[in-house]
Measured scan of single mutants.
Amino acid sequence: NQASVVANQLIPINTALTLVMMRSEVVTPVGIPAKDIPRLVSMQVNRAVPLGTTLMPDMVKGYA
């Protein structure tokens, strides 16, 4: 199973992502692939993302 990107903490709306905010985990449904973590750094979330939430492409500005 492919690992997805999961929030390692509460990420407030419009926050630029950093490595410490994200972890990889095998979850259902599948979200953004963990291999894309380096690409996500500095991108902003367009909503508040609670701890443990799988990041989906529509949550990150400029990803999709």
Rank of each mutant, 00 (worst) to 15 (best):
N1A: 11
N1E: 15
N1C: 04
Q2D: 08
Q2W: 08
Q2G: 12
A3V: 13
A3T: 06
A3W: 15
S4R: 01
S4Q: 02
S4D: 01
S4G: 05
S4N: 00
V5T: 13
V5E: 00
V6A: 03
V6Y: 02
A7H: 01
A7P: 00
A7D: 00
A7G: 03
A7Q: 00
A7I: 07
A7T: 14
N8E: 11
N8H: 10
Q9Y: 11
Q9L: 11
Q9W: 09
Q9V: 14
Q9I: 10
L10W: 14
L10P: 13
L10F: 13
I11C: 03
I11W: 02
I11K: 01
I11F: 02
I11R: 00
P12K: 07
P12Y: 10
P12R: 11
P12I: 07
I13V: 13
I13P: 14
I13E: 15
I13Y: 07
N14P: 01
N14L: 11
N14W: 14
N14A: 05
N14R: 07
T15F: 06
T15V: 06
T15D: 04
T15I: 09
A16H: 07
A16P: 14
A16T: 06
L17Y: 00
L17M: 10
L17G: 00
L17E: 00
T18I: 07
L19C: 04
V20A: 13
V20G: 15
M21E: 02
M21C: 03
M22E: 02
M22C: 03
M22Q: 00
M22K: 00
R23H: 06
R23A: 14
R23K: 12
R23V: 08
R23S: 06
R23F: 04
S24F: 14
S24P: 10
S24L: 10
E25P: 00
E25R: 06
E25A: 15
V26N: 14
V26K: 09
V26R: 09
V26A: 15
V26L: 14
V27R: 10
V27T: 15
V27S: 06
V27M: 07
T28A: 14
T28G: 08
T28C: 04
T28N: 13
P29Q: 06
P29V: 06
P29S: 05
P29R: 05
P29N: 05
V30L: 12
V30R: 10
V30W: 07
G31S: 02
G31Y: 02
G31H: 01
I32W: 02
I32S: 01
I32P: 01
I32L: 06
P33A: 15
P33Q: 05
P33C: 04
P33M: 07
P33Y: 06
P33N: 11
A34W: 12
A34I: 06
A34P: 05
A34M: 09
A34R: 05
K35N: 14
K35I: 08
K35W: 15
K35P: 07
K35G: 08
D36I: 05
D36C: 03
D36Y: 07
I37C: 03
I37Q: 07
I37V: 07
P38L: 07
P38T: 12
P38V: 12
P38G: 11
P38H: 13
P38I: 06
R39Y: 10
R39T: 15
R39E: 09
R39I: 10
L40I: 11
V41C: 03
V41Y: 07
V41P: 03
V41H: 07
V41I: 13
S42Q: 11
S42V: 03
S42E: 12
S42A: 14
S42L: 13
S42H: 10
S42W: 07
S42P: 02
M43W: 06
M43G: 04
M43C: 03
M43R: 08
M43P: 00
M43Y: 07
M43T: 05
Q44I: 08
Q44D: 05
Q44C: 03
Q44L: 08
V45S: 06
V45D: 00
V45Q: 00
V45G: 01
N46F: 10
N46L: 15
N46M: 11
N46Q: 11
N46I: 13
R47V: 12
R47C: 04
A48P: 14
A48I: 15
A48L: 11
A48E: 14
A48S: 10
V49I: 15
V49C: 04
V49F: 02
V49D: 02
P50I: 08
P50Q: 15
P50N: 15
P50E: 07
P50L: 13
G52W: 05
G52C: 03
G52E: 05
T53C: 05
T53L: 12
T54H: 02
L55R: 00
L55C: 02
L55N: 00
L55G: 01
M56Y: 11
M56F: 11
M56L: 13
M56N: 06
M56V: 11
M56K: 09
P57H: 13
P57V: 08
P57L: 05
D58L: 09
D58V: 10
D58H: 12
D58P: 07
M59I: 06
M59Q: 05
M59N: 08
M59D: 15
M59F: 13
M59S: 08
V60G: 01
V60Q: 00
V60L: 08
V60Y: 01
V60S: 01
V60I: 13
K61M: 09
K61Q: 12
G62E: 15
G62V: 05
G62H: 08
G62T: 06
Y63M: 06
Y63P: 04
Y63F: 12
A64G: 10
